[in-house]
């Protein structure tokens, strides 16, 4: 597969993308390069991945819609916790992000 990177490295107004610490995350077990401070969904989109979850009722695929944490369309399972709004959640080293089916399954007890 051709390697995609949809990051905007050079911008006429905002200038060059500043260098940031490189980290790795996993999407469905696949290793992806991310940069510190990036949001999960942004990293996925930068890699050409726009299918973030499948809905419960119509089994439709969803992606980013509002990008500011309001619409909850981008929710995914992150480190075992479902329904995390990935457009406003920053990546962390070795984070495990999974495509979410329906409302997701809890793999981990949080309390």
């Amino acid at each position: 597969m051709k390697k995609k990177d949809l990051r905007i490295y050079k911008h006429p107004i905002l200038g060059d993308l500043p260098e940031r610490k490189k980290i790795y995350i996993y999407f469905n077990g696949k290793k992806l390069t991310a940069y510190e401070g990036e949001m999960i969904a942004a990293v996925l989109y930068a890699n050409g991945i726009r299918r973030l979850r499948r809905t419960e009722r119509f089994k439709e695929v969803r992606g980013i819609f509002c990008a500011i944490g309001r619409c909850t369309d981008c929710v995914m399972t992150v480190d075992g916790i479902p329904n995390i709004r990935t457009c406003i959640t920053p990546v962390k080293e070795k984070m495990k992000i999974e495509f979410q089916e329906g409302l997701g399954k809890w793999k981990k007890k949080i309390w």
């Binding site: 949809l6 990051r7 905007i8 490295y9 911008h11 905002l14 993308l17 990036e38 949001m39 942004a42 989109y45 930068a46 726009r50 299918r51 973030l52 809905t55 439709e60 695929v61 969803r62 992606g63 980013i64 819609f65 509002c66 990008a67 500011i68 369309d73």
Partner: peptide
């Protein structure tokens, strides 16, 4: 309009100017 690839214009602006990713 629920498919990935439909988004608000503001969302698109956030993607390109804040996250610096072309959606």
């Amino acid at each position: 309009w629920t498919l990935p690839g439909v988004m608000g214009a503001g969302a698109c602006q956030t993607m390109i100017n804040i996250h610096r990713v072309l959606p």
